[in-house]
């Protein structure tokens, strides 16, 4: 009986409530996205025309902070708030990173947005970007459909 209660409680905890913290990180991130103009179509065009350092500064400093953070986590064996060891899966190379990378680059320059900024752009009131997002979901679905027939 006691065990049963425990299982119920545990299941509830693992369902949706703990995910609120990721929603909050997302809110913080969305505000950052807008205020840093990462979601700006104009900023993306400047980046691909080498007309401004802004985007390079953002991505570069974000990567630098990321590298130092991951290094510190590994060096000091930092655990999650639940006490689990932190694990980061390595990325394995396949040709998709080249073909898919180029295709995403095309899409990035056209829409002026990578997937994250699409959500923030809709939030700022650019409702037509819902269509861009739906199209991106369609693109993801078509990739899933043809995955086995594509070179990897």
């Amino acid at each position: 009986m006691e065990q049963q209660t425990h299982i119920n409680k545990s299941q509830f905890e693992h369902k949706w409530y703990p995910n609120i913290k990721y929603l909050l990180v997302g809110v913080f991130f969305g505000i950052l996205f807008v205020k840093s103009e990462v979601i700006s179509w104009f900023r993306i065009q400047e980046m691909f025309r080498l007309q401004s350092f802004h985007m390079y500064g953002i991505i570069g400093s974000a990567v630098l902070v990321g590298i130092v953070s991951v290094w510190l986590i590994k060096k000091f064996n930092v655990k999650t708030i639940h006490g689990e060891p932190i694990h980061i899966s390595p990325k394995t190379f396949h040709k998709g990173q080249i073909y898919g990378g180029l295709l995403f680059g095309f899409g990035w320059a056209l829409t002026g947005a990578c997937p994250g900024p699409l959500f923030a752009q809709i939030g700022t009131g650019a409702t037509v970007i819902i269509v861009t997002l739906l199209s991106a979901i369609a693109g993801t679905w078509v990739y899933g459909y043809f995955k086995d027939r594509l070179p990897h």
């Binding site: 995403f104 990578c114 269509v131 693109g139």
Partner: peptide, 28 residues
């Protein structure tokens, strides 16, 4: 919007990640 969005969704999945998953998380 439509072609651009499609390429964003298709390309990122084919590449296995986008600016966040590859450029920031992967490089980190």
């Amino acid at each position: 919007m439509v072609v651009g969005g499609f390429l964003v969704g298709f390309g990122t999945r084919y590449a296995g990640g986008c600016t966040s998953g590859h450029a920031i998380m992967g490089l980190s």
